[in-house]
C-alpha cells in the first residue's frame, strides 16, 4: 500500500508539473479590436470604378463553376504599392503580427487581372484561425502589378458552410491595423460598382504605405 501510494504521489507530481508547464507556455489571444473607425470616412466626390476590365484593381472575387467564374464577394480594401518599396509580403506581415494564420483552410477563389486579362487564384490569404469552426475574420489578396485588391469578410461558424456575417467589420479592423502602423488609411476612399449584401455598399477603403 505504501509503495503504491508513493507511486501515485510521484505520478501526481509529474501531472502537476506538466499541467503547470502547459499553462505557462499557452499562447495569448488576439489583441483587442476597436469596433469604431480610426479615421473619419471620406466625404465628397469619390473616384469611381465601374468596369473591372478597365480597373487596376479587381472588383470581385469569383468561384470556379462548371460554366465559368461566378462572383461571390466584393473587393472592399485596396492598397496602392506601385511606386513604393513595399510589397504584398509587407501587407501580409501586418496580419501575421497580430496572430493571423497565413495558410488557413479556405475555398479557392479567383480575381480578374485586367493587366493580363486572366483570372488568378488568391495570391495570399490570412485568417484569425486555421479552420474557422466558430467564426473568424478572413481575407484573400491579389497583387496585380503593385495594385493590391483585398476581399475582407467576417465568417459565421461553419454550420456546415461559412456564411458572411459582415464585410464592414473586417474592413474597419484592417483600417485600425494599418493606421496603428503608420500607413495612410483612407476609409471609404473609393467607390466600386460592387455593392453586395449583407453590408457592402461599394465603398472601398484605400491604403497607401
Amino acid at each position: 500500500m505504501g509503495y503504491s501510494r508513493r507511486s501515485f504521489l510521484r505520478r501526481a507530481a509529474v501531472a502537476t508539473g506538466v499541467t503547470a508547464g502547459a499553462i505557462v507556455v499557452f499562447p495569448s489571444p488576439h489583441p483587442d479590436q476597436p469596433t469604431d473607425r480610426p479615421v473619419e470616412a471620406h466625404t465628397g466626390t469619390l473616384p469611381e470604378i465601374e468596369l473591372e476590365e478597365e480597373s487596376p484593381y479587381a472588383l470581385w472575387q469569383y468561384s470556379r463553376e462548371r460554366d465559368g467564374y461566378n462572383p461571390t464577394s466584393p473587393i472592399n480594401v485596396v492598397f496602392t504599392l506601385a511606386g513604393t518599396d513595399r510589397t504584398l509580403d509587407d501587407v501580409m506581415h501586418v496580419f501575421t503580427d497580430v496572430g493571423w494564420v497565413e495558410r488557413p483552410a479556405e475555398y479557392v477563389r479567383f480575381a480578374y487581372n485586367a493587366h493580363t486579362g486572366s483570372y488568378e487564384r488568391q495570391h495570399a490569404s490570412a485568417a484569425q484561425t486555421f479552420h474557422g469552426g466558430f467564426g473568424r475574420h478572413h481575407i484573400r489578396a491579389w497583387d496585380f502589378e503593385g495594385y493590391v485588391s483585398v476581399q475582407a469578410h467576417e465568417d459565421t461558424a461553419a454550420t456546415p458552410e461559412h456564411e458572411i456575417v459582415s464585410y464592414e467589420s473586417t474592413k474597419h479592423l484592417i483600417e485600425w491595423l494599418f493606421h496603428e502602423r503608420g500607413w495612410s488609411v483612407e476609409p471609404d476612399g473609393a467607390s466600386f460598382d460592387n455593392a453586395n449584401p449583407p453590408d457592402h455598399e461599394g465603398l472601398v477603403t484605400v491604403i497607401v504605405p
Binding site: F26, P27, S28, P29, H30, G99, V101, E102, R103, P104, A105, Q128, T129, F130, H131, G132, G133, F134, G135, R136
Partner: peptide, 15 residues
C-alpha cells in the same frame, strides 16, 4: 496539427 503545420500560436475560439 493545424498549429504545428502553420506555426499558429494564438489562443483562438476554435482552440
Amino acid at each position: 496539427s493545424a498549429s504545428i503545420l502553420t506555426l499558429e500560436y494564438t489562443l483562438t475560439n476554435d482552440i
